[in-house]
Amino acid sequence: MSKPIPDKAEIALEYPDKFYAGTFERSSRFEAHLEPTGLALTLERPGAEDVRKSIHMHLNYGLLAAILTDMAAGIGALPKDDVHRRQLEDAVATLQQALNGS
């Protein structure tokens, strides 16, 4: 079930001969769910054919864990009163509860 994007996502896909970039803002939607081998993430921007776009990603659990570990290493750069830091703290607490089976 997709949900509105609460902030913004920017993506870039670079090939030797092509470059694609896109922004997904609050008018866009996302879906994230776990599959047997990792996280499935979809970002969708609705609209007419000339503005409509979507991306579909799958991150295996090992890569997802490495990303979270790298994020943890850099979290100290966010000020303690930053709204994004509080959002991350809340999300991590929810994830921790789920991992503990609560």
Rank of each mutant, 00 (worst) to 15 (best):
L43R: 02
A98E: 08
L95W: 02
D70E: 13
R85C: 07
A65L: 09
E44D: 13
T94D: 10
E49T: 14
L43D: 02
M1Y: 03
I67W: 06
D7M: 04
L63N: 07
T42C: 05
N60W: 04
Y15R: 09
E14P: 00
K53I: 02
F24S: 03
V83H: 11
A9V: 15
K80F: 04
A77I: 11
D70L: 12
E14W: 04
E35D: 04
A77N: 06
I11G: 07
H58F: 06
H58D: 03
Y20H: 12
Y20Q: 10
A48C: 06
G62Y: 02
L64G: 08
A72P: 00
H58L: 13
Q97G: 08
A9R: 09
I75E: 14
R45M: 03
V83C: 05
D90Q: 15
K8A: 09
Q87H: 10
G62A: 11
G22R: 06
P36C: 00
A98I: 03
H56L: 05
L34T: 01
V83A: 15
D82L: 08
S54T: 15
G38T: 01
A48L: 13
L41N: 00
A21L: 03
E49A: 15
Y61I: 01
E35N: 01
E35W: 01
E35Y: 00
P46R: 02
G47Y: 03
E31S: 11
F30E: 07
A72S: 12
E31W: 01
H56I: 04
G76W: 04
A73V: 09
A98Y: 03
Q97L: 10
L68G: 13
D50C: 06
E44N: 09
G47D: 02
A72W: 03
A66L: 11
E35C: 02
Q87S: 14
A65H: 05
A40T: 02
D7V: 02
A66T: 12
F24G: 03
N100G: 06
P16C: 08
F24E: 02
E35V: 06
S28D: 14
I5S: 00
A32K: 06
A66K: 12
I11K: 03
V83M: 10
A66R: 11
A66G: 09
Y20E: 08
L43P: 04
S28T: 05
I55T: 04
E89W: 05
A73Q: 10
G38S: 02
E25G: 15
G74Y: 08
V92F: 11
F19A: 15
Y61G: 03
M71K: 10
Q96Y: 06
P46L: 01
E25K: 15
E14M: 10
L39E: 00
G74A: 10
I55F: 02
Y61D: 04
A66S: 14
G47K: 04
E35R: 07
E89L: 14
G22T: 09
G74C: 08
H33S: 06
P36M: 00
G101Y: 01
A66I: 05
A65Q: 09
D70P: 01
A72R: 10
I67L: 15
A65F: 05
A9E: 07
G101D: 02
P36T: 02
P4A: 07
T23N: 13
A32T: 11
A32L: 12
K80V: 12
N60L: 08
